[in-house]
Design a binder for these strands. Structure first.
Lengths: 225, 225, 225, 225
DNA sequence: ACCGTCGGGACTTCCCGTTTAT
DNA sequence: ATAAACGGGAAGTCCCGACGGT
């Protein structure tokens, strides 16, 4: 068994978008280094707090205290509270995108890719603070509509195209619409994750998802004949 | 077929059930008609606001303004902001309980009861502010742990026993555990509802749930032979 | 004819100023009676609360609850919160005036009258809620300058004239100014009462006042020779 | 003769003694000069207002306005309204302690020390806002029992031991108990100060206290023979 | 460049004294 | 005399800049 298809990458968070614009700046390099680190710490601390208190119950002072800095320091790195949250969500997306790419690069058949994707996601929800926080922030709509990508849609579309591919290969049960199935898969997944969180802090998420995925896929894939 | 199995009751909210005793003079029950009405209006207004701005972005002043009253008036009927929210959630529960009872009194076979229950719930999510608000309040954990019933568990246990009954009648597919199935059903339902809300304000919830329920039940019930 | 009972020692509080306007109203008489009683109850309850929580920490609702009535009922008898307090203070004054009159009617020598007056006052502070409350209200200046008599001055002037009389009779020590002595006597008395209250809820007020009065009078009265 | 025995010290208030550690970053003590100054200004303004309106009639906004700042600034330096008041009272105590120490270091005979102490206190009551405010706050019991020292007791005990010393030297009149005398002295003093305040804003406090102290001490000290 | 201190508003919850309809 | 509603503040919290050191 395995919903642990080792799609793991060491993923430094906090390396700012600047990493694209990263020019050669020999002099200030080491300081930049430290700053990036600090920034990452803030993000991590914020993620932890957001994950278990939610956005409104987490104050900047709170975050600052958690990293052992002052509010001023935090405000040096982030424009405002929402910016922190947004950054976490963005980080979440990039992580997922990475995972999606990795999975697709593994050359698995499409249905297996979907399975691997979701299983992996379940694992992340179990351990990764950024993921937990990001999901909660999304779910609670704490952030005013900034330029954040709409939640869920990327998951849905990715899975949808994978399922479409599978459908083309005749692997889907008669009458299953790929988009619909993807929608269901994704929303069930998030629903499950959320209920597990509320009810027992996700202690049984792996087991529950195992059961749920079996059940869902059973209806989706064509019977072996 | 329609998932509108006419489980409908006129449901007066705001009839100051329990919380009346909490207030000053519990004496003389049927007397102040207007008060009950006002109270209900407040609840309704709050529900609407909670449903689409969320708890933290809704201020008491906001609610008061919505009903065309002053904050003082609101505070006459409710102890504090959280009390309003709690009352909405409580109201939600009683409504659901009513629906559950009705469904079970209809004498349908257990599986049909489950289906009817969820279909009906989907309908309510589409139109009823109390339901929308209550679900959101629940999902966003805005209320500090008062003596509110844990969310979801009642749904799960109800459906679980119904499925167990069905299982006893051999109507469930081999290897399906009633409790697990109930858990999945409920969390998928809530997940779907939530995703639909976020993505397009639940415009397509009926359709989506129709598809999802077909898919889920297909895996749960025993194949017709 | 006169039921203007000269002997007003037994001191009904709350008999409203209306007692002057008291016409023959045979029918409503008993109700008037009850009203006066209610009023007195309110006053008593308020006094108790004022005495040990102070004016600002005592709410109208609090008072109403204490007498088992509603706020509205209280507002029937009193114009506003301050009116209640003012009435208590006024009541305090009339009581004291009564005591002063009584003492002077007893035909004691002036110095003994002073002594009796203060000793009696000390006793009242020990047991009478109106006195305790009135003094506290006075001391804490909770009441905006309504038409209340200035505190202390009546005491001071009364004692001052008594001492002047004693001075005329050569009973005062050389160089003692009656007004100054009165001032000192009164303020010492109130200071003592207050300190006793703060320190141990006046448990030792009698003893302390006994000691203090000996000490004070020793300096005031002429040495026996 | 002067009851202004020059026990005067320049007394900086607001040097964020203890309460600094309560705040966020206790690090770097002597750094922000301006902050300490602001803090002191707030305290001074608050003292002035407390002294003549009393605690409940003084709002934080009021205080802030008085110093020409915003509430936010005030709340940076103090936890809440009560904290401000408490700080004033604490400041009062330290000032008094300083005075007591000074007086005792002057090497006067004990009775003279007592006299000097009280005379000096009378002066302070006449001019120093912190003293006025502190005394009023104490007297009106505005502060819920925090860890403030009990009022009056320190005065009483100090004077008590001084009198005991005098008693040992045979300077006290026969039958005078030092503790009792101290109690009376202190409460008379506070009573006088209070009555003077109420009656004419302490305009005649010096004169009154002069008279009172003569009268009191005359009964306490042994007759010259 | 990075971080800390201090201060600024704005807003919200909640309470309380008070009338109006009944 | 009661239940209901009113309106006005009060306290307190939070997010956030404008500096000043290092």
């Amino acid at each position: 068994l395995s919903h642990t298809e080792r799609i793991t990458t060491v993923n430094k968070i906090g390396t700012p978008r600047a990493s694209a614009t990263r020019r050669a700046q020999p002099r200030s390099a080491p300081q930049q280094e430290r700053a990036a680190q600090t920034r990452a710490q803030v993000l991590a601390a914020a993620a932890e707090l957001f994950a278990d208190r939610g956005y409104p119950h987490t104050s900047i002072a709170h975050i600052a205290e958690q990293v052992g800095m002052t509010k001023g320091a935090v405000y040096f790195h982030f424009r405002d509270k929402e910016d922190i949250a947004a950054e976490i969500v963005r980080e979440l997306y990039t992580r997922w995108r990475v995972r999606i790419d990795e999975a697709q690069d593994m050359g698995l058949p499409p249905l297996e890719t979907v399975r691997a994707l979701l299983n992996n996601a379940a694992d992340r929800f179990f351990e990764d603070d950024i993921v937990k926080a990001g999901a909660r922030l999304q779910a609670e709509r704490s952030l005013s509509d900034t330029t954040l990508p709409e939640p869920y849609v990327e998951w849905i579309s990715t899975i949808s195209t994978l399922l479409a591919k599978a459908s083309g290969a005749g692997q889907l049960r008669e009458g299953i619409d790929p988009e619909s199935a993807a929608y269901i898969l994704v929303s069930s997944f998030f629903g499950l994750q959320h209920v597990c969180d509320v009810l027992n802090r996700r202690a049984d998420l792996p087991r529950r998802w195992d059961e749920a995925s079996h059940l869902l896929f059973a209806s989706i894939i064509a019977s072996p004949e």
